[in-house]
Design a protein around this nucleic acid. Sequence first.
DNA 1: TATTGACATGGAGTGTACTCCAAGTGTTAT
DNA 2: ATAACACTTGGAGTACACTCCATGTCAATA
Lengths: 130, 130
Amino acid sequence: MTISEVSKKFDITPDTLRYYERIGLIPPVPRNKSGLRDYDDESCRWIEFIKCMRSAGLPIEALSEYVSLFRQGDETIDERRKLLIRERDILAQKISDMQDTLKRLDYKISFYERTMEENKCESLLHKKDG
Amino acid sequence: MTISEVSKKFDITPDTLRYYERIGLIPPVPRNKSGLRDYDDESCRWIEFIKCMRSAGLPIEALSEYVSLFRQGDETIDERRKLLIRERDILAQKISDMQDTLKRLDYKISFYERTMEENKCESLLHKKDG
DNA sequence: TATTGACATGGAGTGTACTCCAAGTGTTAT
DNA sequence: ATAACACTTGGAGTACACTCCATGTCAATA
């Protein structure tokens, strides 16, 4: 696949795809005889994986470290596992915090809704009054 | 309260507190006769609220718009409610996406754990797992 | 009265993560 | 063979959210 095809497939600009490769956020992409990128299935799986992790807020630094370990081979399996566990725990904590904030927003919204109901009653009363 | 007291209380640097006020992310803080900030309860409640919302990822733009509406008075209650609902829905979606990513990380970690037990090779793991 | 220390302001600098651009190359269509 | 087009690289520019700094004021202490 060409870079523009992959760009459409994953909704990531070619600039960002090249940037991700340049900084080692994905392993090097195979090239054809002209030097153009020719993404294979493995490259696509990496892109999909990285897109997912980035959208969840995992830092580029951790992810590129993961890719770097992957490229070093099997001796890094334990280190990779530890890295994933670290990031997993950070993500779980973030989700928990965000759930608290969501509850708080819901409470605040319900308060606004009650306030508006009261205002309606009041304006009705005022109409009757005045 | 002085800015350094508030800074300690909420674990936000004085620079950030001044920055938040400068860009309207919190309403103006009362000053003493020397022009120094003298945070009252309402200022502190704003800071705590904004810290919570920011840590959940709500954009500064939406929050400063909320503060701006608040400062305009009661005619903006409906608009404020709508703004909060918009941000609430975005947050709920983000949490849902992050939960999917968390599951994926858990699966990947469990795969690494099985792989280590069974002394399997990494390339196999990555092919299967993505 | 001179120094110290917290705080003020406006503006410059930093880190992260892209995003854009200039200049050049290879493939395809006319 | 000339134009059009997609792609290449290295490097510069941008957006966001702080973070730091120079300079100056004010109140309290030595």
